[in-house]
Design a protein around this nucleic acid. Structure first.
Length: 549
RNA sequence: GGCCCGUUCGUCCAGUGGUUAGGACGCGGCCCUUUCACGGCUGAAACACGGGUUCGAAUCCCGUACGGGUCACCA
């Protein structure tokens, strides 16, 4: 059968194609990496993980990072998935240097960067294999293939399309011609070399040398619709695009011998491979890969919706990628960028996703931000995920920033914020309308305070305490009033003679806290009062006094 | 099932023949304290198992167990 008829879309010879993809002019040691997502849904956290590693590796070596859309299976493609993936990468500051960064607009001269646009290229390489007797058409139907598999299973021998089980591997030319004439659908399969070695030793940057039986399967290279399988597309693309490091999930390990074989058949030096371990999750007593179907935290969109600072997510992933990062980071307050990833140091076993640790890192990052940075980040998050709250803080940036500045910028910032989604609820009491809407709960909380404060006490505080003074002065004023109403100045004094007092200073501040915030716990009361302003504080205390009387 | 990979505190990592097996997160205690956080001090907590090699093994070798991956005209 004429190779031209089997690969009708090929328009160039492989020599012509290779001439269009010259070696890249990059400094010695520069790494060219790529992320090759299949557009079947939103970005998986594992995709973000490999992208971060790939991009970092490229940039730290003076190389570049590509995005290649692996959309060779149109059946599985999901509308809008490409945009989702590109947006997610951009959101985390991981935009590629080359690829289709916006629809219809490519950056880089090693494209097209969408595999569905490269069919003629793949067909040209398959034609070359056909010409050299290294590939052949296969007309086997799904039913025939299933029958073979059943026989193999019954005979307990390795399943697959290989050797004598390869129905069309050595068919007489006449039968091929006839099948062709009948218009039967066909795939083009690799003719796994008979003279292959039994074993191959393949290098992996993370895992060292690995031994495998060499590939014996006559795998499909070109599907019946003329599009390539992953195996062929990967090998051709990474060769043409000049990829130096293939960083991919460890689920590809078992097809590595096939890929190495393909590189060899074309006479190409293969790139370096790094198979990274998956991010897992505990299910019952066993671990499994994080799954987008089952686990919300498997989707990158989860972190976006929750409002985790991008750097926090990236730094968490970096701690999984390279154990030295945490220590390094402690000594480099300027951030993650200068850290050089070392693939050889990456863990060979899969890491369990630890949201508690992520939160801890995120708290750390948020605590290090200024109020203005927090305000900007929350505004950006709220614009999409909490429009009402966004309008609220946009209406009074000074008030909002003052709120976010509470216990921040001092020696030690609070670390109670892990992500933005809790913020609207956390600070609701600062806004009079929300506070008023919650009045029933405030009254209930106040009624539960023991010993119950008197209306006179609350009025005295409203009238006499000015929050806009030094903390010590403010405390002194509160203590003095407390003293007049029978509160001990401290827990220590109270414990010495409980009978002599109606309560201790903590009981008094609790009452004030509950009145102002509706909560028993809050950030520093003094700062809250300063931010609220004396008038608002007085109004709330007076109103509460009214409830008691 | 075949093939491949993996296994150090609950979790993530250090550790590459001689360490009281280290750090971080989490957990407990104490201190600080106007609550909650923060911070300081402190505690509990691990080399999967069995054989070798060696003066000496978490480290090297071989088995076993357990976990994971893969065996598509999906990627």
């Amino acid at each position: 059968m004429q190779p031209e008829i089997l690969t009708p879309l090929a328009t160039e010879t492989i020599a012509e194609i290779e001439a269009r993809y010259p070696p890249r002019a990059l400094p010695e040691g520069a790494c060219v990496t790529r992320f090759g997502p299949s557009p079947t849904g939103s970005l998986h956290i594992g995709g973000l993980y490999t992208s971060m590693i790939s991009r970092q590796l490229a940039h730290q070596s003076g190389g570049l990072f590509m995005l290649r859309i692996e959309d060779t299976d149109k059946k599985r493609e999901v509308e809008g998935a490409i945009d989702l993936i590109v947006d997610s990468l951009r959101h985390f500051g991981l935009s590629p240097d080359e690829g289709e960064l916006t629809v219809g607009h490519e950056v880089g001269s090693y494209g097209p960067y969408r595999q569905s646009a490269r069919t003629p290229i793949y067909q040209a390489f398959v034609r070359n294999l056909l010409e050299r007797g290294l590939a052949y058409p296969c007309f086997a139907s799904p039913e025939e293939l299933a029958a073979v598999r059943d026989q193999q299973q019954a005979a307990k021998i390795p399943p697959g399309y290989y050797g004598k089980w390869a129905l069309w591997r050595d068919r007489p030319e006449a039968e091929v011609e006839q099948a062709m004439a009948e218009g039967r659908p066909f795939a083009i399969r690799l003719k796994a070399p008979a003279d292959r070695p039994a074993q191959v030793t393949l290098p992996d940057v993370i895992r060292g040398d690995l031994n495998f039986p060499s590939n014996e399967q006559d795998v499909v290279l070109l599907k019946a619709d003329g599009t390539p399988t992953y195996h062929l597309a990967h090998v051709v693309d990474d060769r043409l695009m000049g990829t130096t490091h293939v960083i991919r999930g460890h689920e590809w390990l078992s097809s590595y011998p096939l890929h190495a074989q393909l590189f060899g058949l074309f006479g190409w030096e293969p790139p370096l491979f790094a198979h990274i371990s998956p991010i897992e999750k505990m299910e019952g007593s066993s671990r499994r890969k994080l799954s987008k179907r089952k686990d919300p935290e498997a989707s990158v969109s989860f972190y976006v919706e929750q409002g985790y600072p991008q750097e926090a997510v990236l730094e968490y992933l970096l701690t999984l990628a390279d154990g030295r990062f945490e220590d390094w980071r402690a000594e480099h307050p300027e951030g993650r960028e200068g850290f050089a990833i070392d693939l050889a140091r990456m863990s060979r076993s899969g890491a369990l996703f630890d949201s508690v640790k992520l939160d801890s890192i995120s708290r750390e990052r948020i605590a290090a931000m200024t109020a203005a940075e927090v305000y900007a980040a929350i505004l950006a998050w709220a614009e999409i995920h909490a429009p009402d709250f966004c309008a609220r803080i946009a209406a009074d940036p000074a008030y909002a920033t003052a709120i976010f500045n509470i216990e921040r910028g001092n020696e030690r910032a609070r670390k109670d914020l892990a992500h933005w989604s809790t913020v609207p609820g956390d600070v609701s009491f600062f806004f009079d309308d929300l506070y008023a809407a919650d009045e029933a709960n405030v009254r209930e909380a106040l009624a539960a305070v023991t010993p119950a404060p008197s209306a006179e006490l609350l009025r005295a505080i409203a009238d006499e305490v000015d929050p806009n003074v030094e903390r010590d002065t403010w405390l002194e004023a509160l203590r003095a009033i407390g003293g007049r109403f029978g509160y001990a100045p401290s827990m220590k004094v109270f414990k010495q003679d409980p009978q002599a007092y109606i309560g201790h200073f903590g009981n008094l501040t609790e009452a004030v806290r509950v009145v102002l915030t509706g909560r028993r716990q809050s950030p520093d009361l003094h700062e809250i009062m300063q931010v609220m302003g004396r008038n608002r504080v007085k109004a709330r205390l007076d109103a509460a006094a009214g409830w008691i009387a």
